[in-house]
């Protein structure tokens, strides 16, 4: 069975992409990540031109994160107020990110920046989360420290607000700044930014893990919708057929993921996400360090017609 993708301009086997969408959807519903950091490299590996992969992936995540958010809303696990705050920062950041992106294209350093951000954030965030979650599971045989409920000084900044769902009374400045920084990184890397946002929500804002996933998914809906619109308008690289196939699998997967996430304990959930992020980082790193077979290659999707 074959299906032709009108924008990617190639024929694919839809079954493979349905299954792929479902697997990434399960991860998305479980961990609250959009899954872009996993899906985009996989799509490129399957022959989709990178520009089309990034744009269609953003379009796919709109639907899968909506499906996941509805699942979490039913469990009362979305802090919409805090989510909106992160979102405002995120949107401002993504516009700044896009202008950085464009100026780096001009001096030919964009690949260096993309590769380094991917590598640093995947391995950095991954290993920190892994250490922390194993630590709180008592793996390192240390005396379990009582969890600190003291907020760091940053949370004591002015303009405080009460976030009932998260049980927090904190300054609105840190969420705005975090949203902004993640927005910049996300638009440079071409992902929703869930895998950076989630650790920041847990370790800096200290939101309860149960609320983090739904809230992250909630704001990803809007970030990816904007990314889809920008790509569609400027580059015409959104393949609606590809996105809908991935989504059909992804939306089903997300529901399964939501179910699974309520069964896993907090530290266990964080440890699994950490292992996942870390392994993607390591695969990418090995790709950077090993000498390629051919140093000169055709850049697919590098030209337009």
């Amino acid at each position: 069975m074959e299906l032709y993708l009108p924008i990617a301009e190639l024929s694919i086997n839809p079954i493979i992409f349905l299954i792929l969408g479902m697997l990434v959807g399960i991860l998305s519903g479980m961990f609250g990540v959009g899954g872009g950091f996993l899906m985009t490299p996989l799509l490129v590996l399957l022959g989709i031109p990178p520009a089309v992969a990034v744009a269609s992936e953003a379009n796919h995540i709109v639907g899968s994160s909506l499906s996941g958010t509805i699942g979490h809303l039913k469990r009362n696990a979305v802090d919409i107020k805090l989510g909106n705050l992160l979102l405002v920062g995120g949107i401002l950041g993504s516009f700044v990110g896009i202008s950085i992106f464009n100026s780096l294209i001009k001096i030919g350093l964009i690949d260096l920046l993309i590769t380094l951000t991917y590598f640093l954030f995947l391995t950095g965030v991954g290993s920190f989360m892994l250490y922390e979650s194993l630590d709180s599971m008592g793996i390192f045989n240390k005396k379990k420290r009582p969890k600190s409920y003291h907020h760091s000084w940053i949370m004591g900044l002015p303009i405080r607000m009460r976030f009932k769902k998260s049980g927090l009374y904190i300054s609105i400045i840190p969420p705005l700044v975090i949203g902004f920084v993640v927005g910049i990184l996300a638009s440079i890397m071409g992902v929703g930014g869930g895998f950076i946002m989630i650790p920041a929500m847990i370790y800096i804002i200290r939101m309860p893990t149960s609320v983090v996933i739904g809230t992250s998914l909630y704001q990803i809906i809007f970030v990816t919708a904007i990314v889809t619109l920008l790509h569609s308008y400027h580059n015409q690289t959104v393949d609606i057929i590809l996105a809908l196939i991935l989504l059909l699998g992804g939306a089903i997967g997300a529901q399964i993921g939501v179910k699974l996430s309520s069964k896993l304990k907090g530290p266990m959930l964080r440890a699994s996400l950490a292992v996942l992020v870390l392994s993607v980082g390591i695969v990418m790193a090995s790709d950077l360090l090993i000498r390629p077979d051919e140093t000169i290659t055709l850049l697919i999707g590098g030209g337009s017609h």
């Binding site: 709109v62 639907g63 499906s67 889809t228 619109l229 569609s232 996105a243 809908l244 989504l247 089903i252």
Partner: peptide
């Protein structure tokens, strides 16, 4: 291009919503 982008977002959102409703 712009209309296409809006439709792509709406279709994606609609499908995500319908699936979660079905579930």
């Amino acid at each position: 291009a712009l209309l296409y982008g809006i439709i792509a977002i709406m279709l994606s959102g609609l499908l995500g919503w319908v699936v979660s409703l079905l579930f």
